[in-house]
Write a protein that binds this DNA or RNA. Structure first.
Lengths: 157, 157
DNA sequence: GTTGTTTATTCACTCACTCGCATAAGTATT
DNA sequence: AATACTTATGCGAGTGAGTGAATAAACAAC
């Protein structure tokens, strides 16, 4: 069972029902054909940014981050940036981010999730994301930041 | 140096100038700060789908696939399928492929690239791709095929 | 404080991926 | 055919992500 798939299932389950322990989640996942240990769940919940909330009645449950599970999987957003950002060019306070065809919207979403200080907004085409930064210096910082993420992609040596 | 970045640099170099041997490419990459052996280049060129073309004057050079490098990287299409196909469900001769939000068009593109026998066409929404197969049996084969690709994503056990 | 429950972490391991080296295979030239 | 050049591949090594089992740590209840 792939990790991504498990995280997706986990997200859907958390969105649909309140679970109050990792063992309970493990059992529920097991009923869906996904075998998982508590140790892995602990890590999964962290990587999803899930928080444990407490109600007034003393009950507790896991809750997805953001407004109603809006941010699905931060690590996946990072994956988009790592894998699909081909190049970042600057023009004054604008950054032009090139992606493979069709990936611009996904990359734009990931960029928005960064909540980069000084990023005013971004527009996605098919293979290009136009990012508006507050000023020229911020744009340079932004490019450095993106480049540093993209660099850490790969394998050995 | 990450593999992805090297492939990107390789693509840009091939788009900008004609190179006629892998050693020549290795040297040029080296001048750009990317050390690489001929063996690796051989693999890179294959994974990019680069072909060696010959001119009328007998000269040869490497050329990116498709109209002016339109189809960048087939292995990246496979990556889309491996990473971003969350689930595939069937209804008669239709297959509904779920993806993370914003990834549907990229996954649809990757699916189209498969040129799966019996795949009539596909439509992408935001997080869903609807695939029309020729018949029910073909749809089942299609799902098995996608699942086999998606399964190989993850880690151990 | 002790006990029981829940969560986080350490450890050892597997696996997929990527790479360089050496070498085989292929291709052109003479 | 022999030689030189070019490309592909078998092989072993290194690396990083991901995992479960065991265990430590945190927390709650009593």
């Amino acid at each position: 069972m792939s990790r991504t798939r498990r995280l997706t299932a986990l997200t859907q389950m958390l969105a649909g029902k309140r679970y109050s322990s990792q063992d309970e989640l493990a059992a529920a996942l097991g009923r869906n054909g996904i075998e998982v240990t508590q140790a892995t769940l602990s890590r999964d919940l962290r990587s999803l940014g899930v928080a444990k909330r407490a109600g007034a009645d003393g009950s507790t449950w896991y809750e997805l981050p953001g407004p109603a599970g809006e941010s699905l999987d931060r690590s996946r957003q990072m994956l988009d940036l790592k894998v699909f950002v081909n190049e970042t060019r600057l023009a004054q306070n604008l950054a032009v981010v090139k992606t493979p065809p069709g990936h611009a919207s996904a990359v734009a979403r990931a960029i928005d999730m960064l909540e980069f200080e000084g990023l005013v907004g971004s527009v996605a085409g098919d293979d290009t994301v136009l990012c508006v930064l507050h000023d020229t210096a911020t744009a340079k910082r932004f490019k450095r930041h993106l480049d540093s993420i993209a660099q850490t992609t790969g394998g050995a040596q």
